[in-house]
């Protein structure tokens, strides 16, 4: 059958690409701004001030203050900054694991592919959060266990995706022709594999952020993550749980909304990058 929709008028598509690129730039700038702002908010800025404790949201304190009189907006921004840091480190580590696993499975002998598959099934078989708790427990809690846990439990989906991509590339006629022509494996990898896989890896990395951030906050909420003096969103929310029955709703609502916004931001950024870098795999 004819596919008439395939020849789209070229002008709007260019515009759409430009708009996506500008959108991604803005989102990236927001992330950078939050991160930098978090660095500059010193401990003095969120020091206890009992004269101001328990204030509902106002122009002076848009997110209100907590039971120690700390400004919730500042604490939230600092918490988001921590989330970005944890997300970045853990997602990067996860992506590296995913790439190595995918390469082993795709390039190695058959049994290695089976072993990687088995490992993926194993990692996905233990409930995610239980595995995170176990790893945090093994590491004696704190930042190290948190990072390690998130890093080793988020690689599976990306690894599957990349492996499928590599296997598909390997079977492409132009890759086979290239091999027959006598190009070295390194040349084939550089010229044919990397241009396809690098964008996928980058997109996969950014799309790992939301999961990493959500699990970081969940683990912190349960008390396994960052130490209580760190203003991570999970800790802020876990602390606020005790004050909810007292009616201090702003302690939970605003930091949570900020976290949701950050997650959606990374999701949007990842999907935007996908449209820009790997349009063939983007759904829309």
């Amino acid at each position: 059958m004819d596919r008439p929709l395939a020849f789209d008028p070229p002008l709007p598509r260019q515009n759409r690409r430009l708009r996506t690129a500008v959108g991604c730039g803005i989102l990236l700038a927001i992330v950078a701004a939050i991160f930098v702002a978090g660095l500059f908010i010193g401990n003095a800025a969120v020091a206890a001030d009992f004269a101001q404790k328990g204030l509902p949201p106002s122009w002076q304190h848009p997110f209100g203050t907590d039971w120690l009189g700390r400004d919730m907006l500042l604490r939230t921004v600092k918490g988001l900054s921590v989330s970005i840091t944890v997300g970045a480190v853990a997602a990067l580590a996860s992506a590296v694991i995913a790439i190595v696993m995918a390469a082993l499975a795709a390039a190695g002998p058959r049994w290695l592919g089976g072993a990687v598959n088995w490992l993926i099934d194993l990692a996905m078989g233990v409930p995610h959060l239980v595995l995170l708790i176990l790893i945090a427990f093994a590491c004696g809690r704190g930042m190290g266990g948190l990072l390690l846990g998130i890093a080793v439990t988020h690689w599976m989906n990306l690894a599957r995706l990349l492996r499928a991509e590599m296997l598909q590339l390997r079977g492409q006629p132009y890759v086979m022709v290239s091999r027959r022509l006598g190009h070295s494996p390194a040349w084939v990898v550089r010229r044919h594999f990397l241009p396809h896989l690098l964008p996928q890896c980058l997109v996969g990395l950014v799309l790992l952020f939301p999961h990493a951030i959500l699990h970081e906050s969940a683990l912190s909420f349960l008390g396994y993550g960052l130490p209580p003096e760190q203003p991570a969103i999970g800790i802020i929310l876990s602390e606020s749980l005790r004050y909810l029955t007292g009616g201090m709703w702003w302690l939970a609502v605003f930091p949570g909304l900020a976290l949701v916004a950050l997650v959606i931001l990374f999701d949007t950024l990842g999907n935007g990058l996908k449209k820009l870098l790997a349009p063939a795999s983007a759904q829309e």
Binding site: A218, L237, S240, T245, G256, L259, I264
Partner: peptide
């Protein structure tokens, strides 16, 4: 899509605030 970006525990806290603390329909 937005709902799948919401942390479970936070959603629980919001429900707790609205239905248990605010409206008093459910126990805490």
């Amino acid at each position: 899509l937005a709902l799948s970006s919401v942390p479970t525990f936070w959603l629980g806290m919001v429900f707790l605030l609205v239905f248990a603390v605010g409206l008093g329909w459910f126990p805490v």
